[in-house]
Write a protein that binds this DNA or RNA. Structure first.
Length: 249
DNA sequence: ACCTATGTTGATAC
DNA sequence: GGTATCAACATAGG
């Protein structure tokens, strides 16, 4: 489920439950999830250390350690963080810290598109979608001829918005996903930013990007929760897109 | 069986 | 440079 709201919940969970616990062992055997590290590299770097802080920008998380490298975590498409739970019986724990006190932190990810690695390069990640300033939003979103939906999902422009959240945001803002981003007037961009922030705030509170009002209608036969019009389905920026043709322009 | 779908990201080709 | 497409992964469903 992971978009920005899920990542924030995961970060908060790590902050509340995993900091300051001494790491006794690390399971970094999955060479795909832990690429480019060889098995044992992350383990060697983190054994005996503690996580000291948990950070997030967009969907990316990283933890500082006491004297060691930074640990980067990404939930991919199906990942979540499980703390002090029994190991997943199907082997879906792709990476884990085992604490000296007997507990553990696992990156549990059926589909294996999540990541765990050391000392990440975050240079190509835009500012967090929930924190971005008005001026920066105008500049980063509004100066591209690409479809609005694709621009909002471009993690190098602004970080954190995924496929479910973006459809909800554009529906709230009554904007068409295919409209060119640079067609929007400054006031429209400011208004859009308000909806971005509100959608993120609501989703974090309610538990995830799937809790948006539009989400239950993203299916054949789905209707606009406001006006009742049949939703349209299409492909924008390579992703399945649902919108209200009557209201969103 | 085979085709499609799925919350992400990166490489690649134009 | 930007934009679109495909592939990486694994599973579910028609």
């Amino acid at each position: 489920m992971p978009e920005l709201p899920e990542a924030e919940r995961a970060r908060s969970l790590i902050e509340r439950r995993a900091l300051a616990r001494r790491i006794a062992a690390v399971d970094d055997a999955d060479t795909y999830v832990c690429r480019p590290h060889a098995p044992g590299e992350i383990a060697a770097a983190l054994a005996g250390r503690r996580l000291t802080s948990a950070h997030r920008r967009g969907k990316s998380m990283w933890c500082e350690t006491d004297g060691g490298p930074m640990l980067f975590l990404h939930l991919g498409m199906t990942g979540h963080i499980a703390i002090d739970e029994e190991p997943e019986p199907h082997g879906w724990d792709r990476f884990a810290l085992e604490f000296e006190d007997g507990g553990r932190l696992a990156l549990r990810d059926k589909r294996r598109l999540g990541r765990a690695l050391l000392d990440p390069d975050l240079d190509r990640l835009g500012p967090d979608a929930g924190e971005i300033s008005r001026d920066e939003f105008r500049a980063r979103v509004g100066r591209s001829g690409t479809p609005l939906k694709a621009r909002l999902m471009d993690q190098s422009a602004l970080a954190g918005i995924g496929n479910l959240l973006v459809d909800d945001i554009l529906w709230r803002a009554r904007l068409s996903p295919v409209r060119a981003a640079n067609e929007l007037a400054e006031e429209e961009l400011d208004e859009l930013r308000r909806h971005v922030r509100a959608a993120i705030r609501d989703a974090i509170r309610k538990g995830g990007a799937h809790t948006g009002q539009l989400n239950p209608e993203r299916r054949p036969g789905g209707r606009c929760p406001r006006c009742g019009e049949a939703l349209e389905r299409g492909r924008v920026g390579g992703r399945t897109t649902w919108w209200c043709p009557a209201e969103q322009s």
